[in-house]
Amino acid sequence: MSMNTTSPKPYSNPYISGIFLGLTLLASFLILGAGLGASSGLARIGASIEGFVFPAHTAASEYFGKWGTSPMNYYLVHMLVGAFLGGLFSALYHARISIQVEKGKKSTVKQRLIMAGVGGVLVGFSSRLAAGCTSGQALTGGALLLTGSLVFLCCVFAGGYAAAYWVRRQWDD
């Protein structure tokens, strides 16, 4: 169901979008001295939730414990909030907001949401292991020509293509 009566506009030219994203990354390098990132903000939300439920346990844990008692007070959390707002602005502007579960016609809502949730757990876990995700490692580190980031990028595609066949049904029409 569409929230807007006007039909959604088609996506912009990907190369122009890429240049726009690249300039945003460049601005981040020159202003903040660090690139873009998303998974760190997400993990800090996780640390806050765990800290709210089990304060002593979280403060004593080796990984989240380092972030102190207010993990949300961090620039990448602000960046993630900004990304949500920027996405909201653009989606409104291009009339692309609709509440839905994206899937192929033959797939059920339940199947698709299980896929999304399990994939999320894998992504959340592996982003911590690599200290970054597609934004913080692959894109940012790639632009800095860091060996580790480009190795990570290659492995993301290797893992993705290897598993693609087994999860293709969710997109079948």
């Binding site: 989606a91 999304a116 992504v123 993301v156 893992g159 290897a162 999860v167």
Partner: peptide, 27 residues
């Protein structure tokens, strides 16, 4: 991490940054 991430990415169709935008789009 890259291999696990790739599997998670293709299963879900999302990565952390794009999912924030996806939520903003009502997904």
């Amino acid at each position: 991490a890259g291999l696990i991430f790739g599997v998670g990415f293709v299963m879900s169709g999302w990565c952390p940054g794009t999912s924030a935008v996806g939520i903003a789009s009502g997904k």
